[in-house]
Write a protein that binds this DNA or RNA. Structure first.
Lengths: 227, 227
DNA sequence: GCAGTGACTTGATCTAAATCAAGTATGAGG
DNA sequence: CCTCATACTTGATTTAGATCAAGTCACTGC
């Protein structure tokens, strides 16, 4: 095969639906890079050199204001990050830290920026992926502004599984202290909130959380509010 | 002129940089609609029929969870809303309420969705506008998670003017109770927080806010934290 | 094996912001 | 002009979550 990168590109949601010619142009400029746990892929304030597409492993997007640091979102295989900064050529607003070893496809930002004006399929696909992520962020903002810590944790846990009925076992996408800032609370509060959820059939052993009944946990979210 | 809508299209940031042929295709399908204060342009949960491009007037995007309602963001002339829902054909996650009388260009979502796959310039421009808005949302999430109510209000006020030095007078983009939920606080808290800012040269008379010294207000944001 | 470090928990206390409860404008409609 | 509704303010009180302070536990490196 002409391009050894092609099989990796196909694993990335942003590129998977693209026609062959677009894929090949991307394969020409993409590079594969391994990263190890706890390292930073890039930091807030830096100029955007690449778009990062996760092939394997997991990372967190974190934003710092003042001395503090807050997790914006967790990302896993198939997801792409930093498309907005790269497209606009503006400094990153967030940093990315690996939460496991893994591999990412790196697409040079400058080349990508010129490709997008000529390749309608690619541009449209970017618009769609950005739209999808826009919705993820909106949901998070709505939750922070209108739900209590307990409700937010319950929603978060439910979002970590694709099942909707019965029981579920899931691994947290990062350390507890990262999950805490993702939810907009402190680690101590997460610890206590987790304990509250015990009454609703949630058990946690390290990174692994077991939910006895998804239905039961769901009742916590809309607390007898029927209108 | 063939298309009476063209001058309006040019006022919309999303379309302004597009080449003539793209503009004309858009002019063919766009419709102008007036709206009056306090009315809803669309509501959360509805199917996306249009993209709304504000030509004149102002609107708020609000999201409701449980019984509550929170302002996500304020929008003014030139800005477009609901592009994400329209592109993906998914139900709106938010509602839009007018905060003044005004006019909007409505682009049918279905037609727009097919245009975008053929028109590279349009698709690229959508990707760029979505990217810009992504950054606005990220900034908001970072602020909510890491700043106190006072800091968030100070930042918000500063963001409402393009000046960076001296004094400034500005009109709030909506009612105080809307500004409050935009900041993730209750109206009562906004009232008290405003009073606190009096010591930092902020005076408020109804919708109008006067900042005596932007520099002085800025010091409040990075409280003697230098590293 | 044992110090050292960093994640997590648990408890006691504090505080920022929410809630509850009156108020005072302000503006629309009869 | 008066009444009603709605925005906003102000005060008293409560509370969710933060902060401060010990702990325990698991893992690393010597």
């Amino acid at each position: 095969m002409a391009h050894p990168r092609l099989p990796y590109l196909r694993k990335v949601d942003l590129f998977a639906p693209l026609p062959e010619p677009s894929m090949e142009r991307l394969a020409d400029i993409a590079g594969l890079q391994g990263f190890s746990n706890h390292t930073y892929l890039f930091r807030e304030g830096e100029e955007p050199d690449f778009i990062y597409c996760l092939v394997e492993g997991a990372i967190v997007l974190v934003g710092g204001v003042n001395g503090q640091e807050a997790v914006i979102e967790f990302f896993g295989p198939g997801e792409s990050i930093l498309l907005p900064a790269a497209l606009l050529g503006l400094p990153y607003l967030v940093s990315a830290r690996a939460t496991s070893d893994g591999q990412a496809l790196l697409i040079p930002a400058g080349r990508f920026r010129s490709m997008i004006d000529e390749d309608a399929a690619l541009a449209a696909q970017c618009a769609r992926m950005l739209s999808a992520h826009w919705r993820v962020l909106i949901r998070q903002i709505k939750e922070i502004k209108t739900c209590s810590a307990t409700e937010r944790l319950a929603k978060f846990l439910l979002s970590q599984t694709d099942k909707t009925k019965g029981s579920a076992t899931l691994a947290l996408p990062g350390m507890k202290k990262e999950v805490a800032t993702r939810l907009g609370i402190k680690p101590e509060t997460l610890s206590r909130t987790m304990k509250k959820l015990t009454e609703f059939g949630v058990e946690s052993t390290g990174e692994v959380v077991h939910i006895a009944s998804l239905e039961r946990l769901t009742t916590l979210i809309n607390p007898t509010h029927l209108d």
